[in-house]
Write a protein that binds this DNA or RNA. Structure first.
Length: 885
RNA sequence: GGGAGGUUAGCUCAGCGGUAGAGCGCCUGCUUUACACGCAGGUGGUCGGGGGUUCGAUCCCCUCACCUCCCACCA
């Protein structure tokens, strides 16, 4: 495409800024400058007010998705805001080794080479994962830079770093010594796809259409036998008992009998168990499979039943399954059902909705599986963690999450932390030839119990979340008493999605209290999950927003601003592409306001800050609005309302500063007037407002604001460290606000008047304002604004005089206006007047009814009643005015 | 089976006791020289249904309907 002609180029040289901007021109540059200048590291002396966050470490395998972008944008807004507000800010970056996820990535690669991890052996495989990590892991870190995240890269951590690994090991040792970690054979959630145990949280229940099979077992001495129901017939091969309820008369005949397990022929005792058996359900007879069901396992414990494992770790039937050995569990199910049917034992096969547990990672059907695992005893950890939230040591924002937290924490089961994987922190437990366990920080040379030197380390690794739970202090060097730990722990705010409240947040609180005696953070901001236009993002819907593509198309600032604006307190955050464009437009608006301002300031003596004297009403108005806006932004940020905060700056900058003030000062700044005092005042106000806007906006749009800041102040890369506008109230000015808001309302009314009459926007209008208007407070101020009013509303005549008989009349902002189009012949607008009149009459009727209601007058607050009276009076004026028109 | 959240303008969402707001969209005008990624004006809402509390309810309570999510060992 040929270059745009000289017009733009000329504009560029004369104003210093191009007409539209290209974020790619400066984003990378400013990030490098900030980093080089050390702004991402906490300055100031230890002990002075600081603000600390740790990033929720993304998986090393990860690429930045819109959810990360959202959470990290929020964190960066907080970091930049606090930094500009004078805090020593530290935001710690890092990544998570993500056991299963990462191992799966590398295993997939191996599979493409026709290999399995076992072919390489443990050492080689792990080396291979590290190699992968070196070349394509950590991609997400560069992507966080693109987003503008002001993370302290000098403190970058990885959960498998030597220091963090030591912390993990030490935490394990401490819990083990305190009896809070134990090893045992229990039924756990087993994923045959991942070939490892997983925790309860990693099992995703999915409603699925299944079948409930009813199977008859023979019971010698009981003619009709016993009918049991199951959705997993293949597990029957592992049955070691039947259970009935002790008080169920229906099955009284089965008491003390023995049943015969079909196919296998095993002799099964009939036990009576009131806990397992629900008398209401089905036949009241339950098959007991201790090796493949949590409840049945408990029954087995109670009655000393054997446990027979019939489904192996690979999801195939074990040799215990006899002729079915080696078959996939689902194939076996089918064959067993066929056989039962052939034998006439299948009483029924009914459609049944089941909650199918599936693996969060691989989506395989989870199998309850009896195996030896390591567990954390949760109750002693949960109790203080519950208290910490109850007593406000840890606060949730929004608060409503506390309820969910409590509900979960009060019903916790022990946490299975061992994983049959290779990638992760290896369990520091060693078994000697005599079967004794030694658990230690350093690899032991001999068994603690018998001194045997023949030690073998437990092959399992720890659940990834076991290391993540230590993150807020392991990143600072715990268990060493490092200066960083001293200085920056506990942290202040933790920002993350509510989806990992249990996985991570709750466990961090437990671990923090246990290991450091302090809660790891004082506030948890749980945000919603990002949806696109209310819909879940998915490739099949084709609505996936890739933040990196969005950054490329709209700029990082626009992406950030959009995400911040979308931040809602609810469980979903809705983002649309249209909003990205809107944010980009907003950045351009700012850019152009800056161009205009620079044009005004160029070649003139440096402006001084506005000083209260010689300020016009518009000057005072915009300063007042700025003051209020700054206070609002501050308040909203305190309350984690990023949408409101962003909206406040947006509204101020676009609609008040640009649409309002800029237009008002143009005549003041024009050629003839530009040397005069009011123009000088306006220029200083303009500069002040723009600079403040840049500062206010910087946490949301760091790049474009820094770029403009350089042009405006000549101080490159310093906006990031400029004090954040506080909104002290110093410039609050009710008089100026009333007058200018009235002015703006009148201007709008005049323009609408033209539209109503079908007149062109340039058609001169004569306006008369009645000094005896119902609300006269603004009249003197308004009189000083007369030239401005004439200019903005394009009036051919403006008078402060009683309403003109015969002219069109209306009441705006409490002021009685008479309007006329001296040159117009068109007479439109009558329909509109009629409509307006009807609406006014309607409201008058309602308000007068209200004011005639004694109960209202008596019970409503006087201020409200007064407001109603005022409104009624105004409406009556308006009705009169419109009626005369 | 429990629990939480939602239902407000065509779309996406704010508001949560004094009769409704934004962005986008839509309509109508504009080379008003910072900006068409713009300016100006406008259109558009029985605030899911029903009941109650209140002087007054989109906002509080009850109930129904429909969505979404979380938790739970019902064979």
């Amino acid at each position: 495409m040929p270059e745009k002609p000289a017009l733009d180029a000329a504009a560029a040289t004369s104003k210093g800024l191009e007409k539209t901007f290209d974020p790619a021109h400066f984003e990378e540059r400013w990030y490098a400058v900030w980093e080089k200048d050390g702004h991402f590291q906490p300055g100031g002396p230890p002990g002075s007010p600081r603000f600390v966050m740790v990033i929720p470490p993304p998986n090393v395998t990860g690429r930045l998705h819109i959810g990360h972008a959202y959470g990290r944008t929020i964190e960066d807004i907080l970091a930049r805001w606090k930094r500009m507000s004078g805090y020593r800010v530290l935001w710690v970056p890092g990544t998570d080794h993500a056991g299963i996820a990462t191992q799966m990535v590398v295993e997939r690669q191996l599979r493409e080479e026709g290999l399995a991890r076992q072919d390489l052996g443990r050492e080689t495989f792990i080396e291979r994962v590290w190699a992968w990590r070196r070349e394509s892991g950590d991609m997400i870190l560069g992507q966080l830079r693109k987003l503008g995240c002001s993370l302290d890269w000098s403190r970058l951590r990885f959960t498998l770093d030597p220091e963090l690994s030591r912390a993990v090991r030490h935490a394990f040792v401490l819990l083990y010594r305190d009896g809070l970690i134990y090893k045992g054979r229990y039924v756990v959630n087993w994923c045959p796809g991942c070939r490892t145990a997983v925790s309860d949280l990693e099992v995703v229940e999915r409603k699925t259409k299944g079948t409930l099979y009813k199977i008859r077992y023979d019971v010698p001495g009981v003619a009709e036998g016993a009918v049991v129901a199951t959705t997993r017939p293949e597990t029957m091969l592992g049955d070691t008992a039947l259970a009935i309820h002790p008080e169920d008369p229906r099955n009284a005949a089965l008491r003390g009998k023995r049943a015969l397990l079909p196919i296998v022929g095993r002799d099964l005792p009939v036990v009576e168990d009131a806990i397992l058996v629900d008398r209401e359900f089905g036949t009241g007879v339950v098959k007991v499979t201790p090796a493949h069901d949590v409840n049945d396992f408990a029954v087995g414990q109670r009655y000393g039943l054997p446990a027979v494992v019939v489904i192996g770790p690979d999801g195939k039937m074990t040799p215990e399954a006899g002729e079915y050995a080696g078959l996939d569990r689902f194939v076996a199910r089918k064959k067993i059902v066929e056989r039962l049917e052939a034998e006439g034992r299948l009483v029924a096969a009914e459609p049944y909705e089941i909650n199918l547990g599936t693996c969060q990672r691989s989506e395989d059907v989870i199998e309850p599986y009896l195996s030896e695992q390591w567990f954390v005893r949760i109750e002693p950890l949960a109790e203080p963690a519950i208290r910490a939230v109850e007593d406000g040591t840890v606060r949730f924002a929004p608060e409503s999450w506390a309820k969910t937290y409590f509900a979960w924490m009060r019903n916790l089961r022990d946490w299975c932390i061992s994983r049959q994987l290779w990638w992760g922190h290896r369990i520091p437990a060693f078994t000697c030839a005599n079967g004794h366990l030694t658990v230690a920080d350093e690899d032991p040379a001999a068994c603690d119990t018998c001194g045997s030197a023949a030690l073998e380390q437990d092959p399992d690794v720890l659940d990834t979340w076991f290391s993540s739970q230590l993150w807020p202090f392991s990143v600072f060097g715990w268990p060493e008493k490092t200066p960083d730990l001293e200085d920056f722990y506990p942290t202040d705010v933790l920002v993350t999605g509510y989806d990992i409240l249990f996985f991570w947040v709750a466990r961090m609180i437990m671990a923090g209290l246990r290991f450091t005696g302090q809660a790891p953070f004082s506030t948890v901001h749980l945000h919603g999950l990002v949806r696109v236009g209310g819909e879940k993002m998915s490739k099949s819907r084709g609505n996936v927003i890739d933040p990196l593509e969005a950054i490329q198309e709209f700029g990082a600032d626009a992406v950030r601003f959009t995400l911040a604006s979308a931040a809602a307190s609810g469980p979903t955050v809705s983002v649309e592409r249209g909003r990205m464009a809107g944010s980009r437009n907003f950045a351009t608006k700012l850019w152009n306001a800056a161009r205009f301002t620079l044009g005004q300031l160029e070649g003139r003596p440096a402006t001084r800050p506005p000083d209260g004297q010689a300020l016009s009403l518009p000057d005072r108005w915009i300063l007042s609005r700025l003051d209020t806006t700054a206070a609002d932004v501050h308040r909203h940020l305190e309350g984690f309302r990023f949408d409101e905060a962003a909206g406040a700056v947006y509204g101020f900058l676009w609609h008040e500063l640009c649409d309002g003030y800029l237009e008002m000062v143009k005549p003041v700044l024009s050629q003839e007037a530009s040397a005069q005092a009011p123009a000088e005042a306006a220029r200083s106000v303009l500069r002040h407002c723009l600079e403040s806007s840049l500062a206010l906006l910087h946490p949301f749009m760091p790049f474009v604001t820094e770029e403009i800041w350089e042009k405006l102040t000549g101080n490159p890369g310093t906006l990031i460290a400029t004090p954040y506008p506080q909104g002290t109230g110093r410039w609050r000015d009710a008089e100026a606000e009333t007058a200018v808001e009235a002015l703006r309302a009148i201007v709008t009314r005049v323009r609408t008047f033209r539209t109503e009459r079908g007149a062109s926007p340039t058609e001169p209008v004569e306006l008369t304002i009645d000094p005896q208007s119902p609300s006269r407070a603004g009249i003197p101020a308004l009189e000083t604004l007369a030239p401005l009013l004439s200019h903005l509303a394009r009036l051919s005549d403006l008078r402060f005089a009683p309403a003109e008989a015969g002219a069109f009349q209306d009441v705006v902002a409490g002021l009685m206006l008479s309007l006329a189009l001296p040159q117009a012949s068109a007479a439109g607008g009558q329909a509109r007047v009629g409509k307006a009149l009807a609406a006014v009459a309607d409201e008058i009727a309602q308000l007068s009814a209200k004011l005639q209601n004694p109960a209202y007058l008596e019970k409503a607050p006087p201020a409200v009643v007064e407001k109603t009276r005022l409104r009624l009076r105004e409406l009556e004026e308006k009705r009169a005015a419109l009626g005369r028109s």
